[in-house]
Design a binder for these strands. Sequence first.
DNA 1: TGAAATGTTGGGGCG
DNA 2: ACGCCCCAACATTTC
Length: 446
Amino acid sequence: MSISILWFRLDLRLADNPALTAAVKRGAVVPVFIWAPEEEGKWAPGAASRWWLHQSLRELDASLRKLGSRLIIRRGPSLEVLRELMKQTRADKVLWNRRYEPALNARDAKIKATLSAENFNSALLFEPWEIQNSSKKPFQVFTPYWKSVVANAGRIGSAGASPSRLPAPKSWPASLSLEELKLEPKIGWAKGFCEVWEPGEAGAQRQLRRFIKQAMAEYAVGRDRPAMTGTSRLSPHLHFGEIGPRQIWEAVQKNLSQAGWVYLREIGWREFAHHLLFHFPHTTEKPLRPEFARFPWKKETAALKAWQKGMTGFPLVDAGMRELWTTGWMHNRVRMVVASFLVKDLLIPWQSGAEWFWDTLVDADLANNTLGWQWTAGCGADASPFFRVFNPTLQADKFDPAHEYIKRWVPEAGTPAYPKPIVDHAAARTRALLALAKIKSGTLPT
DNA sequence: TGAAATGTTGGGGCG
DNA sequence: ACGCCCCAACATTTC
């Protein structure tokens, strides 16, 4: 029997974990998590993500201990740690599930070329290179991409079960304590997070069952009502791999209905985001449509601050930004509204919004965040056209008609204590369209 | 997975 | 009865 290092990354679960299954098959398993944020460059986990990661690692360790195993925690560099661990434990192979972020593709390739390693897919229905259009190129439009995924659905593997046993090595190598990683905030700003989230594999499963039973049938409407729990709320669990898309696919197929497809389509958008990030890795920083590099963005520090703090004077925008700050999450309908407001009403670069979301969202995910912001800014693949400007007031009336959501997060709205709108929306819309015209006319000869 | 501007239609009041 | 105007309701176009 061989000894394997199982390198946990964004796959913090025991069920449907192909690397884990393969490791168990080989013999003894040394599960390890390596904290190496510097290897992710600019996109190292933000503060909210680190809070979640701490809880999730604690849960993972507890589940491993129930099987007589445990989680070894180390600090990077990853290659050095893995090499050392192999020596210490006499393991002959490292197994892991793939990630697709540009910085990590390079790092992992190097590790794979250096050590004896084997990789698996736990995070996606299809690998980004498996879905191609008829000319063998990546898709850039969602609908044909999704059609291709559905047409190939028969090839989606079934979700694996948790291992019933997890053979331990003869002796355990040294480990840091979870606290030593200092992932949790020093001051208690994450209190609100604890009230609404249950990080870990068990919490993810509970959330999935809650959604399928109580919300999925009404999803087509419920997903647009920020005051309701009408969405799956699985995004942070998915990001950390506490649940995988194959498990969701399988569970929804068992209860399939028209509404089920509406939801699976959203899983499709997540899949599409990973597809795009893999094939167009520069889009984390730069617009996919090159003409947007010339867009006359503003550097409005005060306005950006007002947006971040939820003090723009637009109740729905502020409600969303405060929900984000308090709970580490924002309803997707409201994400579109606040993003449109930042990019179009304030003309602040979408990258500034992406950075703020990166730091404050517990579900911050490089693929989804990049797609979301480029979609809003109109500069991405299959993006919303820039001239589609959300009117925050109309959006509130449509999707929060009783202002229940607004009252929850902005109780002082409508009183003198509430700030005056920092822009005139109608004027801001005109200004945004003018700015857009500039990059269009810029392509014409003078 | 918008909203505003502009165009069209048709019912009803009124001379 | 008829033409004219008003305007809400709906549709289409534009950004």
